[in-house]
Amino acid sequence: MGKTVRFHEYGGPEVLRLEEVEAGEPGPGELLIGVEAIGVNRAEVLFRAGHYIEPVEGFPARLGAEAAGVVEAVGPGVTGFAAGDPVSVVPAFSMNGYGVYAEHALVPARAVLHRPEGLGPVEGAAVWMPYLTAYGALVELGGLRAGDAVVLTAASSSVGLAAIRVARRVGAVPIATTRTAAKREALLAAGAAAVIVTGEEDVVDRVRALTAGRGAALVFDAVAGPGVVDLARVVAPGGTLFLYGAVSGEPTPYPGFELGMPALNMRTYTVHEITTDPERLRRAEAFVRSGLESGAFRPAVDRVFALEDIAEAHRYMEAGNQVGKIVVTVGG
């Protein structure tokens, strides 16, 4: 038996309960992980509230798709892992099937990566999802190249900060946007070439000025909603507007016709496009490991909570004031 976070109905953070649940033995293709730290993501907040891209299939429901820990048991047919291995779990499965908000968690082995030497549990729970997400859109799918400009919305999130560093890694020019000036210095310190404060500046004018009128090869947007019309205006011909979140909660138009049918690519994207494809995940892991080893990449942890304070961690996520990753530690 071990402590597991579950919820028995949709609702706010108050519906989260810490319950004693038997983890069970790993089946074919599975690992049993002793969880040491959990990466909290907006997907879990949306899943808990009933607003995620997939509904809960049955209550009580589990949460969590990103964690760091140690392998406790190896299921039939699994190779490359042994009890005692320090590992990280990456989002590569439905939370209707698995959940890592727990002291012990069963997970598919395909969603587990060996933790780089010297990377502790908190860092191991904070690094993979942001960098895999950013690499997947910008490099694997977007083909970002040296000299290209990329506009990053919600840039103070863990994914936004990772995207800044991924862009720098390939020689591109990351332009960060943020609602208020409070996070400007943190974004510049993270490597942003420029920061646009959307509450004070015109995004279209600033991007055009920063790119000498060329526009951005890519826009990586976590907000969606009506703001995509202005974002589409700054995409260079043939460029791509990636939508990987919908923080605004508002309907999202397709702006192509309104803007006169420009050569605009607009697509949705989730990290599962990378993590559920073995070859893409292999390339992404190599890219991120290389960045970690060189010092170009590092986990950005904003605040750490204890498992017993999981509801408070969700409230903090919903407040939206963090710069970087929210992590929950498990046990001593």
Rank of each mutant, 00 (worst) to 15 (best):
R168F: 07
R169V: 04
G171R: 08
P174G: 13
I175S: 08
I175R: 05
I175M: 05
A176Y: 13
A176E: 15
T178R: 11
R179P: 05
R179H: 04
T180H: 07
A181M: 04
A181W: 03
A182Q: 13
A182S: 14
A182L: 10
K183M: 11
K183P: 08
R184T: 15
E185P: 02
E185V: 09
A186W: 04
A186D: 14
A186I: 03
A186E: 14
L187M: 06
L187G: 05
L187A: 07
L188T: 07
A189H: 08
A189L: 09
A190Q: 08
A190K: 08
A190S: 12
G191D: 10
G191R: 09
A192F: 03
A192I: 07
A193K: 06
A193T: 09
A194N: 08
A194V: 13
V195Q: 06
V197C: 08
T198S: 14
T198F: 04
G199W: 01
E200W: 00
E201G: 06
E201S: 09
V203I: 15
V203F: 03
V203K: 11
V203E: 12
V204N: 01
D205C: 00
R206C: 08
R206E: 14
V207L: 13
V207S: 13
R208C: 04
R208D: 12
R208K: 15
A209N: 03
A209I: 06
L210I: 13
L210F: 06
T211F: 05
A212G: 15
A212S: 15
A212M: 07
A212T: 13
G213L: 07
R214K: 15
R214H: 12
G215H: 10
A216P: 00
A216Y: 00
A216V: 01
A216N: 00
A217R: 15
L218F: 00
L218W: 03
L218T: 09
V219E: 07
V219I: 09
V219F: 02
V219A: 09
F220I: 12
F220C: 06
F220V: 12
D221W: 07
A222M: 10
V223F: 00
V223C: 01
